[in-house]
Amino acid sequence: MDPAEVEFLSEKEIVKIIPNFSLDKIYLIGGDLGPFNPGLPVEVPVWLALNLKQRQKCRIVPPEWMDVEKLEEIRELERKEGTFAPVPSPYYMELTKLLLNHASDNIPKADEIRTLVKDIWDTRIAKLRLSADSFINQQEAHAKLDNLTLMEINTIRSFFLDSLNFMYKLRSNMQPASSKGKAMDY
């Protein structure tokens, strides 16, 4: 999977915007949006919010968790816990990047938020690598990883799957009798 595809999926998340134009309710396959009235907050998907923002038709209200104090709390929790702490949004990384790149004037303390999210990301990736290593080391067959986001899984996916495949084959070497009957995929 491409990171761009993950980003595409994240654009279906809902944000609140304050439009400065008026429009009737619009009917789309994915659901009805609107009606839009100047000054009245309305919920729309991110892709629409960004589009309107680029045409300067609205102001984006940042999601609740995109706030310095809350993110600091999450960061501390993440550093303290050995396991993955719950994240504010399954697409926290993508949303931060999208919103901060296109609508940084609507988000207070944009730079601090950027650093905080990056810190959280780094901590989680380090944890992910640590747990992958212990997973391999103890030759486990399955593991439960809660609270991982798609983007995080995506960075390590191909490497990890390949390693597990190789390890499986090296392991099946140890029981030559049972590996005889297995045909290759190719």
């Binding site: 491409d2 980003e7 995506n154 960075t155 191909s158």
Partner: peptide, 25 residues
């Protein structure tokens, strides 16, 4: 064999980094 693994690890990292820098689009 490990070189192949290294390469797939790198492709994951490079993909993410180029996305983060906005080159993916």
């Amino acid at each position: 064999l490990e070189k192949g693994l290294f390469k797939s690890g790198q492709s994951g990292l490079n993909g993410f980094q180029s996305w983060e820098k906005g080159q993916a689009g």
